[in-house]
């Protein structure tokens, strides 16, 4: 019954839209995070291969997933994070990549391929794109002491000056690690404790944001913001009062990687696109634009600015990484539990 109705809608939609989708030439449909690729890379790709890039953006893994799952929109290449890739592999949504078509994989540092095995055993489905940590970006002129702990974002002193991350796993992850628990916990008492702390934090928070945190911190709207490390270099470039720190209690280290959904339109085009992104010079160009840490060793060697090349923010030392954990997919039930508790936090 449900299928029939969905089918009827699809047919009527097709009927109305086929006229516009007729185009000449090859296309690749890319579904990526917002502000996460240099638009010139698309142009260069089009010039080199003649394949036109059709791009679309999402703001969180949770927003991306149902679209792929429902298959309503067919994308060729998608860029989810670690735990979401694991979930998509589990649910058989991803196609194995034919690495004969991705010779540039050799440019990716093997250590990242190794850490990718935690969510993609055997590296069959994904190619690392960017990686980084989650931390606090703070404005040196607006805080009294150097920030080195998550306690700052729960401190009443900074009431109204805190920008909290609007992403369920990240928000709970940092709270759990502040409390000394595992970021991937499935223990409900621990989660409830984290929820209680987040509820206490609610009145102190100026806004829950993801992409907007960057501009708000540059504009000195707030003193502290929870942010991905990749934004740190860019924001510091725009406002030198800003400083990024991975708190001492530990944090999340993440990898975003390119994957190809099973229902893609053209797998070869997708592989050509991934291969192009892994090219050393392209990866460098892209890195300079988005400033998210690249796993591409050729690109990293070519970085000219010594400060960035040796930046502890872009390429954190081992002792920082040692206190960071990767998110794992926890299964549908715990996912729902996290979401419910997150909703409870926000409707105090």
């Amino acid at each position: 019954m449900k299928k029939i109705i969905v089918f009827a809608v699809m047919v009527s939609a097709l009927f109305l839209f086929t006229a516009c989708s007729k185009g000449s030439g090859e296309k690749v449909y890319v579904y990526n995070w917002g502000e996460y690729i240099d638009p010139e890379v698309f142009e260069l790709f089009e010039e080199e291969t003649g394949i036109e890039v059709v791009d679309d953006y999402f703001e969180s893994n949770e927003e991306m997933y149902p679209k792929i799952k429902a298959g309503a929109v067919q994308y060729d290449v998608v860029c989810p994070s670690d735990y979401m890739i694991q979930k998509m592999i589990d649910e058989d949504l991803l196609a194995e990549i034919n690495f004969d078509n991705v010779p540039n994989l050799k440019n990716i540092d093997t250590s990242y391929l190794k850490s990718s095995e935690t969510f993609d055993p055997g590296n069959k489905f994904s190619v690392p794109y960017c990686w980084g940590t989650l931390g606090i970006l703070y404005n040196k002129t607006m805080v009294d002491e150097p920030i080195d702990s998550w306690s700052a974002i729960f401190d009443e002193k900074y009431s109204g000056n805190i920008l909290m991350i609007d992403s369920v796993r990240d928000a709970f992850g940092i709270t759990l690690s502040y409390l000394g628990y595992d970021m991937n916990t499935t223990n409900e008492t621990e989660l409830d404790e984290a929820k209680a702390l987040l509820q206490e934090q609610y009145p102190l928070v100026q806004a829950y944001v993801v992409d907007q945190v960057r501009d708000k911190m540059i504009g000195e709207e707030a003193a502290l913001g929870v942010i991905y490390s990749g934004e740190a270099i860019y924001t510091k470039r725009e406002n030198e009062n800003l400083e990024y720190v991975v708190p001492k209690e530990g944090s999340n280290v993440w990898i975003d990687a390119w994957v190809i959904p099973k229902n893609c339109r053209n797998k070869e085009n997708a592989e050509a696109f991934i291969n192009f992104i892994c090219d050393g010079e392209i990866a460098l160009k892209n890195f300079e634009y988005i400033t998210y840490s690249t796993p591409n060793s050729i690109a990293r060697d070519m970085i000219e600015d010594e400060d960035i090349k040796n930046s502890q923010v872009a390429f954190p030392p081992q002792e920082v990484l040692d206190r960071c954990t990767t998110f794992r997919y926890l299964g549908e039930d715990f996912e729902a539990m996290y979401n419910n508790k997150w909703n409870e936090v926000k409707t105090e």
């Binding site: 949770e62 429902a70 829950y208 909703n343 926000k346 409707t347």
Partner: peptide, 19 residues
Amino acid sequence: GGSKIILIGNVIEQQFRLG
């Protein structure tokens, strides 16, 4: 509202987003 204030529209939107 800085995603701090949840109206019924936000709840519904979120449910659809989460699938």
